[in-house]
Nucleic acid binder design. Structure first.
Lengths: 122, 122
DNA sequence: TCCATAACTTACTTTGAAGTGCGTCCCTTA
DNA sequence: TAAGGGACGCACTTCAAAGTAAGTTATGGA
């Protein structure tokens, strides 16, 4: 890994930065739904039925603050707001893909990671 | 991403799996210190001064349960326990590397990700 | 007149991860 | 006799993230 320079305590581990950016309970799911299209608030609500309006709004605002998502407001009544993945957000996609691949292996193995590990580790 | 098959609600997003595995406050740091060598409990304590014994023990046990870390006990007095990255744990390294790289960019940009994003997004 | 709509706030409660402090086990050396 | 490792376990507290429920805004249409 590339962060071997400074004392480990001095600067936060960059991995934690990614975890912070993606670590909200619904953030990966939200980004997932923004991958292929721009979505409205209400669309996301329908696509993620278990999320509450509060959490959706909060996570979208955090993703926007981190520059991953662009928010566009159309000043109509009732209001219309669109969310899209930013170009910067797109730079995260390969990382998410790597995470996704590993997660799938870890996950689909009969939900007993210990056994997978034993099989792999011999 | 590869998880487009089932209904999004049916199966947990694989990204969350990675976040769960790496998401403990000290887990990335612990794995980081195990990358190049096998370490004893007390060694890890010294390398991560701010961690408490409880959290170190707890996170090591979780990492072991997830199959990422192998625990070896030497029945001496006083006891000696060694922790090493398992082969399965090594499969996570490229993922961690990708996260690390992105995290560094996001992090080192004057700690104002919003501005970086604006620069990138134009 | 008044209700529906979209996209939120705000106030409050609950959950769970993290931190604190101390006990423990067994043997060795002073 | 007693102190001192090494690697924890346990009971408790703390605090931030998540969830619940209700209110807000402004207006075009029934």
């Amino acid at each position: 890994m590339a962060a071997a320079n400074a004392t480990t305590e001095e600067r936060k581990c960059p991995i934690e930065t990614v975890i912070h950016v993606l670590g909200g309970k619904w953030k990966p799911t939200i980004l997932w739904h923004l991958l292929d299209a721009t979505r409205r608030f209400s669309e996301l609500e329908k696509m993620i039925p278990e999320i509450t309006q509060k959490m959706l709004a909060q996570h979208l605002r955090e993703l926007e603050a981190d520059g991953l998502v662009v928010r566009t407001v159309y000043p109509t009544v009732p209001p219309k707001v669109e969310y899209a993945l930013s170009e910067y957000g797109i730079t995260l996609v390969p990382v998410m893909q790597a995470m996704c691949n590993w997660g799938e292996v870890h996950q689909t193995s009969a939900w007993k990671p210990t056994e997978v590990a034993r099989a792999i580790n011999g």
